[in-house]
């Protein structure tokens, strides 16, 4: 990845403010933390889920259960992708029935990841509602899916690549746009499994 061409969209402080706002919106919409469970999609959705849970605890003093989900077994391209995704462990150690389930991911793009996550959630039970929270919505949906809570909307070209970095994983809090000026950059990305 050529560093010269990347564009920083959010820095750590902007991200932290947006996440705090999303936490407040979640509490407002659901009338508190009582009925909530949070499930983060691996890898960075899980980090974001942890952050949201921590802020909610600071505000309400209530512990919200957090689960992790790997969606690779539910992908719609398992039979088409020449390079098989590595399947990691899903970790949902609580009942999702009749809960308001907040599904968390870092970037909302085509909507296919969320479709896979919804199929998987249904195999775990029947939540009262499923609400979607994302750090970045970059448009270009290929399925009828939308986010309920958005850290930031970013206009992009389809071929661009947007990455969310968290200190926990990447040593820096940052949202970065890699414009698709160089076609090879995007081609390389799509084999990384993380097609954001």
């Amino acid at each position: 990845m050529n560093k010269a061409e990347k564009r920083e969209i959010m820095d750590g402080r902007k991200m932290s403010r947006a996440i705090t706002r999303v936490a407040h919106e979640i509490l407002e919409r659901n009338g508190g933390a009582e009925s909530l469970v949070i499930i983060g999609i691996l890898t960075r959705g899980a980090v974001l889920a942890g952050k949201l849970a921590k802020i909610i605890k600071d505000i309400e003093g209530e512990e919200v259960k957090v689960g992790l989900m790997d969606i690779n077994l539910y992908r719609d391209d398992v039979n088409f992708n020449p390079d098989q995704p590595v399947v990691r462990a899903t970790d949902i150690l609580f009942d999702v029935n009749d809960k308001n389930l907040i599904l968390v991911d870092d970037v909302l793009f085509t909507g296919r990841t969320i479709r896979a996550a919804l199929s998987q959630i249904i195999d775990f039970g029947r939540p009262k509602t499923v609400q979607l929270a994302v750090m970045v919505d970059r448009g270009h949906r290929q399925l009828p899916i939308r986010a309920d809570y958005v850290g930031k909307n970013i206009p992009t070209a389809f071929e661009d690549s947007v990455r969310v970095y968290f200190e926990e994983n990447d040593d820096v809090d940052e949202v970065v746009l890699y414009p698709a000026s160089d076609k090879k950059t995007t081609a390389k990305k799509s084999t990384g499994g993380n097609k954001k």
């Binding site: 790997d70 077994l73 539910y74 992908r75 398992v78 590595v86 399947v87 990691r88 462990a89 899903t90 970790d91 199929s119 998987q120 195999d123 775990f124 039970g125």
Partner: peptide, 22 residues
């Protein structure tokens, strides 16, 4: 790779619906 992937499938066996679509 087989052993690492097995960890994930072991978890599937503890789910209420022990079935995945791949």
């Amino acid at each position: 790779l087989i052993l690492d992937t097995s960890v994930s499938f072991r978890e599937v066996l503890d789910r209420p619906i022990k079935k995945v679509p791949p």
